[in-house]
Design a protein around this nucleic acid. Sequence first.
DNA 1: TCTTTATTGAACACTATGTTCGATAAAATA
DNA 2: TATTTTATCGAACATAGTGTTCAATAAAGA
Lengths: 251, 251
Amino acid sequence: MFCHLFTTEQNRPLCQAKKGVMKEKKEDRRIGRTRRLMHEALIALIVEKGYEAVTVQDILDRADVGRSTFYGHYRDKDELLLSSFEHLRTLFEEQQQALLASRRTGVESEINFILELFRHTGEHHQLYKAMAGKQSGEMILKYLHRYLYNLLIVPHLELMKLRASPPVPIEITTHYLVTTLLSLVTWWLDNQMPYPPEKMDEFFRRVTGPSIEAAFGRKVGAYEAIADKDPTGSVKAFYSLFVDSDCCPDK
Amino acid sequence: MFCHLFTTEQNRPLCQAKKGVMKEKKEDRRIGRTRRLMHEALIALIVEKGYEAVTVQDILDRADVGRSTFYGHYRDKDELLLSSFEHLRTLFEEQQQALLASRRTGVESEINFILELFRHTGEHHQLYKAMAGKQSGEMILKYLHRYLYNLLIVPHLELMKLRASPPVPIEITTHYLVTTLLSLVTWWLDNQMPYPPEKMDEFFRRVTGPSIEAAFGRKVGAYEAIADKDPTGSVKAFYSLFVDSDCCPDK
DNA sequence: TCTTTATTGAACACTATGTTCGATAAAATA
DNA sequence: TATTTTATCGAACATAGTGTTCAATAAAGA
């Protein structure tokens, strides 16, 4: 199922780059296999019993891996989850890059970020369900929220340079937008995705479009431009702050 | 600070009603005092270090209460939290009843439920911060979400009886509304309440008003009626399902 | 084939939760 | 005020889960 996900993962205790010798060495296959087993076990267990209820022993039993092996790879359960998330991110970024590359050869060079997010979610729904569904812990959703907020607040501030005071403060509007997007994604996952990604994208736009105009107090077709602006930068930035030490809570 | 909050609390292990003898007996003052100490300790500790990080021992140390005493009153930390929440609920309901009673003597008999919620939140912001702020656990917010959703979905369905298919499915619209309300409340709490309750109410309406119309595909001034409809029933029902066994997750 | 390294499980330590029980002080009652 | 009831205490204990160390062994790489 996730065979390609974790093969090239880097990790602190076993990372050779940390020894000052940067060798383009292929990773020992036992490492890749062990990590993959642990990741798969975690994802399955989250969906079954909820992240908080999963114990390290549960993971070990499911993955058929020893305790000291687990701690040889990961600091704790949270780090394993973060690692899974990072690979989901890599998947998404790679897909966006490929999409962008193919788009450059065509007439339309824009990417609909929201639609792509829903599409990716649909394709990897089990993973997303474990990460962001109702059985997940709060950690990933908090990351996502913070990230998206930081992504959107800067262009919102620029948009407001020409206006002294919108009817609704832009911090609130931005918070609202991020919350709405994430809540639609989680709703979709938790309800077995009853609509196609294109429909979800449409629902999001229908609901938030008028709100943006009301909140900013002006006719904002520019919202489309904001959401889709600089897709290359957006895609890369989308996840890149999550596992950086600066952005993460309780680190 | 919270001296009046927990004095009359009922609880399973020590509740005399459970013995089949329903006596209008005043509660032993030691019970009230002990519970108050524990509740106050919990609230303070949540705000300081976050709900998940608070241990039972932390609570005992802060409250200066013995371990077996704690377990004589509450099954575990979650039950103590639920108990705190129930008293917050009682506070809210009593305030709404008083408000309703005073309103009946005046010209205007309607209550703005959303505004009252923001007002109550502001008056008891430390409590709400512990219950629903960023340091809280998920439990209460999940309860609140489920409840509000159930409160709104029925009138939404009735409103839709005359229309075959809205542009946005009403489950999604309802989910969106509840999410938006709760996210505004938590935003407000987590940002030290920079605006008065009336302003927050206005922001909520500005943002969601146009969305409702777009989502339902019709001119819905009736949303005002939906939100404020049957205030007595609404207020009582608002919290009453939270601690009932039928509605709660993982019980 | 030889060397390196990932993995294993046993044993252990620690933390936190949850329980039992007799002693005592506080509260309620007569 | 005296007596009875009961809430509370802390010691002692058990359990579950986390995290560490280390020698042996098998798997992977050179």
